[in-house]
Design a binder for these strands. Sequence first.
DNA 1: CGAGGTCTTGAAGACGATCAACAAACGTGG
DNA 2: CCACGTTTGTTGATCGTCTTCAAGACCTCG
Lengths: 240, 240
Amino acid sequence: MPSPFIRKMERLGPLSEEERRVLLSATQATRMIEPDQDIAREGDRPGQSCLLLDGFACRYKLLPDGKRPMLSIHIAGDFCDLHSLYLERLDHSIGTLTRCRVAFVPHGTIRDWMASYPRITRALWHDTLVDGAIHREWVANVGARPALERFAHLLCEVAARMRWCGLAQGKECELPLTQSELGDALGISLVHVNRVLQELRRDGLVELRRGMLVINDWDRLAEIGQFDPAYLYVGAERPS
Amino acid sequence: MPSPFIRKMERLGPLSEEERRVLLSATQATRMIEPDQDIAREGDRPGQSCLLLDGFACRYKLLPDGKRPMLSIHIAGDFCDLHSLYLERLDHSIGTLTRCRVAFVPHGTIRDWMASYPRITRALWHDTLVDGAIHREWVANVGARPALERFAHLLCEVAARMRWCGLAQGKECELPLTQSELGDALGISLVHVNRVLQELRRDGLVELRRGMLVINDWDRLAEIGQFDPAYLYVGAERPS
DNA sequence: CGAGGTCTTGAAGACGATCAACAAACGTGG
DNA sequence: CCACGTTTGTTGATCGTCTTCAAGACCTCG
C-alpha cells in the first residue's frame, strides 16, 4: 500500500519507478514531534520544507489579542510549507495537533527534483495550487456560513481528504482535535463548537468522540455544509 | 513610468530588456469589461489567464443561499487566475467591480515564457504564492477579528498593495467598492459596514466617498487592523 | 486515587443581522 | 438643465447568533 504522500503525488497521473524512489528516499530521515509543538514559526526562514508523514498538524497565526486562528489542517501526506521554497519568510506558524512524524526535505533537494523530474514538479505545483483553493474555500466558509454549516463543511473536507489519501474508509475517520482547536479552525468559540456538535449528533449526522469521527449520514452532512469537493481537485469519486 | 504589472513582476529583481518586452507584448490586445460582469465563472476551463490592467475585480463564490463571499480583491497588475494554468477548472468566479481593462494571456504563451525565461517563471510563481499568503491572511481576518478591526485591516491591505504598484501616493487611494461589496469581502452585512465605517470616520481615521479612500491616520488604522504587511512579501517600505 | 485537561451546561450580554424606511447621489432621457 | 428612476448610503428598531463567564462532570494518565 502506497504512502499517503505518494498517493497524493500520483493524483495527476502515475510516476515512474525512479520518481517514486526519489520521493520515497526523501521520507527516510524522519523525526517525531510531540503534540502542540511548533514545527516552524512565523518569521522563520526555513531551508527545508516539512512533509507530514503521520499525525495531524495545522497552520496558524498568533494574533496580538491572543487569538490563534487556524489557517489549514494538515494530514499525513501533506507538505505544510512547500511555499517556503520561494517565499523568504513564513507568514504563519506550523504546529502539531497530535504527535507527528515528519520528514524535513531540504529546499536544495526539492530544487533538484524540479530540475530533473517534470512530473514531480508538476505534482508539487498542483499540490500548492490546491492548497490555495482550500484557503479560498475556508475564506468563504468562515466568511459566509453560520456555525452549524461551517462545522459540517469542515468535517466533510477533512473526511474527504483523509479518504482520498487512503487514510479513512467507511464512515469512520480520525479527527483528534479538541473542541477548542476546532473553534480556532472555525472561528467560533469553544462553547459554541460544543453546542453545534451536539446538534449534529442529535440529528444523527455524526459522532465525534475520542478523536474519532463517524459520519452517519454523509449526504445530509454535505448538504448542510454545502460541501462540493470540486475545490479539492480530486476525481469525482464520492465517499459513502 | 512602468505599468503596475511590470512593477509587480520586478519586485524580486530587475528583468532584462527582452523579458520586459515579452511581458509587455502580452498586454497589447486588451478588452474593456463593464462593471459587475463575470470575467470567468466557477467551473470554467479557461485556456487563458486574465491579467487585470486597469480597474478593480474580485474572486467570489456564489453560495446556494444567495450569499456571495468575496475571496480576494484585484487591482491593476494582478493576474486573477494564474492558477488556472495548472488547475483544470476554476473553483470560483471572477467578476469586475468597476469597468476593467484586461488582457487575456493564453496558457500556451505563459508556458512559453516559463520555458525560456526563468526569471519570469520565478516571478509568476512568487506572485501565485503571495496570492496564497493573502488568502491565509483573509482566513485569519474573517475568522478572528471583529468587524471594525477586520475593516481596518482590509483598508490597509488594499492601500498598501495599491501603493506598492504605484497606483496610489500620499494619503489617497482609489477604492470604488460599494458598501454592499465591502460587506461581501468582510463577511458582514451592508448595514454593519456602514456603521463601522462611520466609526472609522468619526475617529478621524479614514474618509471614503465616491470611490476614493483617504487614510488620515495610517498608524492608528494599522494598529486597529493589526496590519503587518509582511504577508504581502514586499520590501519593508512603510506608506506614510 | 488524584490532577489536569477536556467536555458540558446555564445564564447574561454583546455583536452583528435583518427589516424597514428614507435620504442622497447618480445617470439617463426629455 | 431639470425630472425622473435607480442605485447607494444612512438611520432606527428589533431579533438572533454567538461570546463570555462560571461552574460542574467526565475522562485519562501518572
